[in-house]
Structures are given as C-alpha cells and as structure tokens.
Amino acid sequence: MKNESLTAVLQERPLTRVVANCAVTAGSVLLCLLISPSRLPGMELAGIGPNWLLIWVVSWSVKRTAFQGALAGLILGLIQDGMTAYSPTHVLSLMLVGILTARLRKERYLKEDFISIALIVFAMAVIAETVTAIQYSFQGDRTLVEIWTYHQLIALGSAVLSSLWAPIVYYPLNRWWQHIQTIEQQS
C-alpha cells in the first residue's frame, strides 16, 4: 500500500523523482565510502577487504553509456584519492572500469544475474589493481619485484571479496534504478 502511494508520488512529481533518485544514488556512494575504511569480520582476507567503490562503479555502469561510466569513475576516483593519497591516482583505474563495464556486450555474453555481476566485478577488480600497479612501476619508488608480488596478493584478494559482496550493492541499487526508469516511461 505504502509502496504504491510512493510510486504515485514519484509518478506525479518529476522534481521529487529527481531529488529522490539523486538522494538514493548519493546516499549509496556515501555508504560505500564510509564502509571502505572499516574491516568488519567476514569482510577481510589477509588484511584485504572488498573494493566497495569499484563495486559501485560497476553497478552504475552496467546499464549505462561509457561516458556515464567514465564520469562515475572520475568522481569516485577523485574522492578516493582524497581519502588515501594523490599519486598513484584512482581516477584512471575507476574510469577504465566504468568504460569497460559499459562497453561490455552483456546481452550477448552474459545474462543479467548475480553470477554475471560477480564475474564482471572479479575481472574489473583485477584490471583496476593492475592499472595501479602499472602506475607504481612508472613512479619507480618501489622495486618492480615488490610491486608485482604485492599486486598478485591484492588483485586476487580484492577480486574474490569484491565479487562475493557485489550483489549487496548491485541488487538494491539496480532495483531502484529500474523502478525509477519504469515510472519515467509511464509518465
């Protein structure tokens, strides 16, 4: 009942719809940002936790254009730079993840379900960590052996954990965006 009235309100008032949509989107980003410094029990593997921002960028980009994916990567990358250090930057890796996820021919290769999202997140986490490792290699303040041994550990750990936790972010967000889209089409 309540759900229906909410839908009706969203349908009648486009402005409310936009505001609600922005609030949910920004709120989910904020949640992902706030959860990234924490290491809750069960979310940790050898001191490595899931990469929440990457999960968010993938969830966002799955059904959007490459430009929108890149934009999300840019914004979250800038914020994550602020939370850690400016160089090497996260902007590159997250933008690449956004673009690649959006360009992926999902309808041909992958069906829309938990498993495929987990697979995409797994691959993207490996790609993102590789981009960071390459940046470190160019920076030259660590030895290459060190960087790439550590890269193996991080890429695998963060890919496994991120893909396992991805549905938690993806499912509710995707439901919401789909809901908004159907309302928009109806009105």
Partner: peptide, 11 residues
C-alpha cells in the same frame, strides 16, 4: 577505528 581505504596504502 579504521584501516586504509585502499590496499596499496598501509594506513
């Protein structure tokens, strides 16, 4: 209260 927000940094 927390760890670093990315794994490449040890904060």
């Amino acid at each position: 209260v927390g760890r670093s927000a990315d794994h490449w940094w040890q904060h």
